[in-house]
């Protein structure tokens, strides 16, 4: 995935753009962000375990409890 461009003038343009979005697109974008976050989380939790992170460290990094991350991702 390429980096989102969120710098300088483009930030102002983007803010204006987000406020003027059709809700059908804007709400879909929110749903898509949640889905994307879940996908990135799944990939990164796996990577962190591979690198020897404990469930507690991963939970703290994600701002959730050790138990919830373990229940969701244990093999």
């Amino acid at each position: 995935m390429r980096q989102p461009r969120l710098t300088g003038m483009e930030t102002d343009d983007l803010s204006a753009q987000i406020h003027s979005l059709d809700p059908a697109i804007g709400l879909r974008a929110v749903g898509a962000l949640h889905r994307l976050a879940e996908q990135v989380e799944a990939a990164q939790v796996r990577a962190a375990r591979h690198h020897g992170w404990t469930w507690e460290q991963i939970g703290d990094a994600l701002g959730v409890s050790r138990q919830s991350v373990h229940a969701k991702y244990r093999e």
């Binding site: 995935m1 483009e10 804007g26 974008a29 749903g31 898509a32 962000l33 994307l36």
Partner: peptide, 10 residues
């Protein structure tokens, strides 16, 4: 939808 809020997931 993501592109419309500046996020490129291509």
């Amino acid at each position: 939808a993501l592109a419309s809020i500046g996020i490129d997931t291509q």
